[in-house]
Amino acid sequence: MAKKKRLKDLNFLEKIYLPEISKGLVQTFKKMFQPRFTMEYPEVKFEPPDSYRGRPVLVQEENGEERCVACGLCSRVCPALAIEIQAGETEREKERYPERFEINMIRCIFCGLCEEVCPEEAIIMSKDYELVFSNREDALYGKDKLLVPINELQDRINFLRKHK
């Protein structure tokens, strides 16, 4: 078997390891006094950038009505089949509204396709990342949990308009 040639042969000091080891030790020793990156989570909250895709929410207009017209495109495009919508008829100008709008947060993969496909800018990926539930039923987020006033989502909406 042909012996593989090294790119560069080690010199004597490198061969006896000790200087290299002490270099490594010095490096780690320096590290001990450098600032920490850890974020102490429950006390210190992470403030995500506008591009962050957190929990999908429904936009609630200033008059308290939802923007969603229950077209079902988010439900259709959702690769994880997380969204279930039952449409209904209203007297408002847009005849259609979601009687029931449920996102199964166990299924949701936060891909943001629902947000991308939405023709009404009605479903938005919020900055909310605190999703805890202890049973499958709690993970079904209905309209009560999904509707978020529009002024809380303005950052993301501006971001989408700029980059979409």
Binding site: G72, R76, A87, G88, R96
Partner: peptide, 9 residues
């Protein structure tokens, strides 16, 4: 049938 269901569902 109005608004009951999407065709593709």
């Amino acid at each position: 049938f109005r608004f009951k269901a999407r065709v593709w569902d």
